Amino acid sequence: MAGRIKDHLSIDCNDEGAYYVEARVNHPLREFLNHTDSSYVSQLLPAGATWTATTAGGYIAMIQVTTFACGGISLGAFLSHIIFDGPAATTFISSWAALTRKCGEEAGSPNFDASFVFPQSVAYPREATLSALFSPFLKKGICRSMRIVFDALAIDLLKVKTASSSVRDPTRVEVVSALLCKCIMATFKAKSGIQKSTLITHAVNLRQRAVPQFSKHSMGNFLCMAAALVRANKTGLDNLVCHLRKAIRKIDIDLITALQGDGGWLKYCECIKEIGKASHGTNDKIDLIVFSSWCNMGVYEIDFGWGKPTWVACAPKTKSKIEMVNMIFLMDSKMGNGIEAWVYLEEQHMAMLEQNQELLAFGILEQSPLNLIVS
């Protein structure tokens, strides 16, 4: 993490150090948190940080600590996806925080034993790198971000609405994902005039699904993609929840076992490429929605000694040409039983989505983080 990117498959561990910068703002933190427009959050990240930075000589970790006039502090972190997935990033920051409090025993140290579970291979092809494997799911375009808050009451109502004989106890991630999918699919149809089939993907953490479980502090990308292809005439909420659960449950013990060992990387490539083929239907007949959930990762338990976070955010990049179109990141709310969804869509689709009455019946658009804390 103190080294530099060498090429698409390796890091030069030269101990040149992570990027670290301090900034000051001549306004109180409360003034920022009162904003309903969350686009300012990107200013709290290190300048130049991008989601897909893989340039040779690039940093692995970039940190910006911002101090506000009131003494409030924000920590903005960009951690390269070459080595960090969501759980790994949380482990790194949690361990750092525990050491800062001189309570290192309270947080597990980052575990770098991934190569024993998933052995390196000299035959590993360039087209099987993380960025290449996931490129079928990434779409470039001028996109806009929007933060949608679902509180505990709204989620409970969604659970009642979507429960069925196939899924008796839907989870909060399942029901929020299903609602967002339904509303976004309606937006796509309104824009194009055609209801296409939609490929919905969810990144699944392999750590707790393995037997025996991998260390929850394992560094690397212990992820696999669950994919559900939803036909144009199957867009009911209960049906979407059912499709999502079936897709996620396919990533089971048998699959994870097959991914391990010398031939595991080949099996992984095959799994991802099969999903990629489905996402590239001929004549652009398939829409795509990509989810990544950071829920239940304990981000609100991180304490550097100043107390636990008031708000943890997924920094948006507004009106920028980046490969995040049709992507949704799910985060825990401060109270832990709600969800904040960070949605990235093309601007024309976002303008329609924010008018969707079914979405507005359950979600609150760009609510101030301070209002969430009070409620």
Rank of each mutant, 00 (worst) to 15 (best):
residue 310 T to M: 15
residue 341 A to V: 02
residue 308 K to N: 08
residue 325 V to A: 14
residue 324 M to K: 04
residue 339 I to H: 05
residue 309 P to A: 06
residue 322 I to S: 08
residue 329 F to T: 00
residue 326 N to W: 05
residue 309 P to M: 04
residue 324 M to S: 08
residue 301 E to W: 11
residue 308 K to W: 03
residue 339 I to W: 02
residue 317 K to Q: 07
residue 326 N to S: 14
residue 341 A to H: 01
residue 300 Y to P: 05
residue 298 G to E: 06
residue 335 M to W: 13
residue 305 G to R: 12
residue 331 M to F: 05
residue 316 P to Y: 02
residue 315 A to Y: 00
residue 306 W to S: 09
residue 329 F to M: 03
residue 336 G to R: 14
residue 321 K to E: 09
residue 315 A to P: 08
residue 307 G to A: 08
residue 316 P to L: 03
residue 299 V to P: 02
residue 334 K to R: 15
residue 298 G to R: 04
residue 310 T to N: 11
residue 314 C to N: 11
residue 300 Y to A: 07
residue 342 W to P: 00
residue 318 T to V: 10
residue 302 I to S: 03
residue 304 F to I: 09
residue 334 K to A: 10
residue 298 G to D: 06
residue 313 A to P: 03
residue 301 E to M: 13
residue 331 M to L: 13
residue 334 K to I: 10
residue 317 K to M: 08
residue 323 E to G: 10
residue 320 S to Q: 11
residue 325 V to S: 07
residue 312 V to W: 00
residue 303 D to C: 09
residue 297 M to I: 13
residue 315 A to Q: 00
residue 315 A to I: 00
residue 324 M to Y: 07
residue 319 K to Y: 13
residue 315 A to E: 00
residue 339 I to L: 09
residue 339 I to S: 06
residue 334 K to Q: 11
residue 334 K to H: 14
residue 342 W to T: 00
residue 298 G to M: 05
residue 339 I to A: 07
residue 297 M to V: 10
residue 331 M to E: 00
residue 315 A to G: 01
residue 323 E to D: 15
residue 305 G to A: 13
residue 323 E to N: 14
residue 330 L to G: 01
residue 327 M to Q: 09
residue 299 V to L: 12
residue 311 W to L: 03
residue 311 W to P: 01
residue 332 D to F: 06
residue 302 I to G: 03
residue 314 C to V: 08
residue 325 V to H: 03
residue 323 E to M: 14
residue 306 W to N: 09
residue 326 N to Y: 04
residue 309 P to R: 04
residue 326 N to H: 13
residue 312 V to A: 02
residue 337 N to A: 08
residue 299 V to K: 03
residue 316 P to S: 07
residue 331 M to D: 00
residue 305 G to T: 13
residue 335 M to K: 15
residue 322 I to N: 06
residue 300 Y to R: 11
residue 314 C to Y: 05
residue 316 P to W: 01
residue 341 A to D: 02
residue 335 M to E: 15
residue 303 D to Y: 07
residue 310 T to K: 13
residue 308 K to D: 03
residue 303 D to T: 11
residue 336 G to W: 13
residue 317 K to A: 06
residue 331 M to N: 04
residue 314 C to L: 10
residue 327 M to R: 05
residue 313 A to E: 09
residue 341 A to T: 03
residue 320 S to I: 10
residue 319 K to C: 12
residue 324 M to A: 12
residue 307 G to I: 05
residue 342 W to F: 04
residue 312 V to G: 01
residue 303 D to I: 10
residue 299 V to H: 07
residue 306 W to C: 10
residue 339 I to P: 01
residue 318 T to Q: 15
residue 334 K to W: 10
residue 316 P to F: 01
residue 340 E to F: 00
residue 308 K to F: 05
residue 313 A to Y: 05
residue 319 K to T: 12
residue 340 E to N: 08
